[in-house]
Design a protein around this nucleic acid. Structure first.
Lengths: 193, 193
DNA sequence: TTGAAATCGGGACAAATGTCCTCTTTCGAA
DNA sequence: TTCGAAAGAGGACATTTGTCCCGATTTCAA
């Protein structure tokens, strides 16, 4: 798993020395999970920042009526955590589980914080990830309040090509905030062309 | 304006020395704007971080069909900018204008960046603001994909009491991603209780 | 002060969306 | 392999939501 992570880091930023990359990787816990395995249970504190070297995770929340609402897809070579719970050691509102057998690197807050002070380039990289995250969250809000279901679906397949092939439609519908029925109607209408 | 800002900063964080607060304030440009005045025009680069000492701003985006979509309300004692445009000096997709006569403090990226390196407490404070922003954005996404219009409205008046009294209903409807008609129906139904 | 524009509620109607159901196919665990 | 569960399409129907009107009131700028 570490070679995958190292290759990813080098592709993302040229600011790291090889020694720094080695230290970051050395601080990680390696973990393999099977499909459907739970990595974070709502109510628990999210103790780790996670990097997915292989596989596919999702982050979702259970509504008061018991329904699942999918907040995030996390394919390989992306990061995930509940930042709020991780930073403040609060119980999380979210669940994270594996949609496919996956391989992960985990950093506890203590060890990651130590790396951040030790390696300024990591702090800059982490800030950049947060900034990107904020930007894409704003875009998602904009689409959620401004687009029709058709537009949301088209935007989804444009922005995340490939995800559609890996997850059930009901998860895409949940992510987009519409019923499976609406999504399947849209797809049916598009077959007419 | 500066005394208001200084009082705000002291209330938010005890990590600043008086001298640091003075320097931060000294780097700001003071600006007064009249209601309806435009502070950022879509297509322009957002050159400033803004702090509202008095008044009320909004951030919105114009859809391809010409409709306004309200992304953010910014009352007094809050910050606003288009972070994406500000950080990368890209043309912005957003407009920012004044909903009331307002008084602002503006920092250009160059002068704010200088402050960030000079004053570590400011970097920590700024990181905290971004973290809060990301957290509330996630919550807004969750509500957008999981709540009925009624729930969105009730959550809005719970989360932002007071805003409803200061802005036209159509802006609240736009912020929540529903038509004015739907919002007015919900309000009508609530009068029955 | 006055006239134009904006706000907001309401009615009527059409369109979109959700729920509930069935049926078929696929998937997954024993 | 086999059996039960999940996925996904589709029909029927009710509900919700949006659009297009109108009219009364308020707001704003000349």
């Amino acid at each position: 798993m570490l070679p995958i992570f190292e290759k990813y880091i080098k592709a993302q930023s040229t600011s790291f020395t090889d020694e720094e990359i080695r230290r970051i990787g050395a601080a990680a816990i390696q973990r393999k999970v099977r499909k459907k395995e739970l990595l974070l249970n709502a109510g628990e504190v999210c103790r780790y920042k996670m990097f997915i070297t292989k596989g596919f995770l999702r982050t979702y929340r259970i509504g008061s009526d018991g329904s699942e609402h999918l907040m995030q897809f996390s394919p390989e070579l992306t990061w995930t955590t509940d930042g709020e719970s991780y930073a403040n050691r609060n119980p999380s509102d979210y669940n994270i589980d594996a949609l496919e057998d996956s391989q992960l690197l985990l950093w506890s807050k203590d060890s990651f914080d130590a790396l951040l002070t030790l390696i300024p380039a990591l702090k800059a990289f982490s800030d950049q990830l947060i900034s990107n995250n904020l930007h894409s969250s704003r875009n998602r809000i904009y689409k959620a309040i401004s687009s029709t279901p058709e537009e949301k679906y088209e935007d989804f397949i444009r922005t995340y090509p490939g995800i559609l092939l890996r997850v059930p439609l009901r998860m895409v519908a949940s992510y987009l905030g519409m019923s499976v029925k609406t999504l399947s109607r849209i797809r049916q209408a598009q077959l007419q062309h």
